[in-house]
Simulated scan of single mutants.
Amino acid sequence: MRGPKRSRTTWIVLAVAFAAVVWSLDGTGVSVANLAAGWEGARDIFSGLFPPELDGELLQAVGRAALETLQISIAALFFGTIGGLVLAVLMAGNIGAPRWLSGGARLIATVCRSVPELLWALVFVAVVGLGPAAGVYAISLHAAGLLAKLVSEQLEAVDPAPVEAMRMTGASKLATGLLAVIPQARNNIASLVLYQWECNIRSSAIIGFVGAGGIGQALGISMRLFRYQELATLMIALLLLVVAVDQISRFLRRRMGAATR
Rank of each mutant, 00 (worst) to 15 (best):
L107T: 09
V111W: 02
V115K: 03
A121K: 02
L101T: 11
P116R: 12
S114V: 00
A97E: 14
A126M: 09
V127S: 11
V128T: 13
I95N: 10
G103R: 10
I108Y: 09
R106F: 06
W100R: 11
A126W: 05
G104Q: 11
F124T: 07
G104N: 11
A105C: 02
P116V: 04
C112F: 11
V115G: 03
G96L: 04
S102H: 06
R106M: 10
R106L: 10
I108A: 15
S102V: 02
W100L: 10
W100P: 00
L119T: 03
L118A: 04
I108R: 04
A121M: 02
G96P: 00
G103K: 06
V115I: 12
A97Q: 10
G103W: 07
A126R: 08
S114Q: 10
P98K: 13
F124M: 09
W100E: 15
G129H: 12
R106A: 14
A126H: 05
G129W: 11
W120S: 07
P116A: 12
V123M: 13
W100V: 07
W100D: 14
T110E: 15
L101D: 14
C112W: 05
P98D: 15
S102T: 05
G129R: 11
V123T: 07
S102M: 05
R106I: 00
F124C: 05
A121I: 00
L119R: 01
L101H: 07
P116N: 13
L107H: 03
T110A: 12
I108E: 14
V111F: 04
S114I: 01
V128L: 08
T110N: 14
C112S: 07
W120H: 06
V123Y: 14
I95Y: 09
P98W: 13
R106Y: 10
L101I: 09
G104V: 01
T110D: 15
V123D: 14
C112T: 00
V125S: 12
L118I: 06
V115R: 04
V127W: 11
L107A: 13
G103H: 08
L119Y: 03
T110H: 08
V125T: 08
G103P: 01
W120L: 04
A105F: 01
A97V: 01
V125Y: 12
G96Y: 07
A109N: 08
L101N: 09
L122D: 12
V127Y: 07
L101Q: 12
V127C: 03
G103F: 02
G96C: 03
P116I: 05
G129T: 11
A97R: 04
P116E: 15
G129M: 10
I108S: 12
A105M: 04
P98I: 11
I108V: 14
L101F: 05
A105R: 06
A97G: 03
R106S: 14
A121L: 01
L101S: 09
L122R: 03
G103C: 05
R99C: 00
V125C: 08
F124H: 09
T110W: 07
C112Y: 09
L107P: 00
W100K: 06
A105S: 08
I95H: 03
L122I: 07
V128C: 06
R106E: 15
L118G: 02
V125Q: 14
S102F: 01
V123Q: 10
G96I: 02
A105E: 14
E117H: 00
L122V: 04
V127G: 03
V123S: 08
A105Q: 10
V125N: 13
R113F: 01
A105K: 04
A121Q: 08
R106N: 14
A109Q: 08
W120E: 15
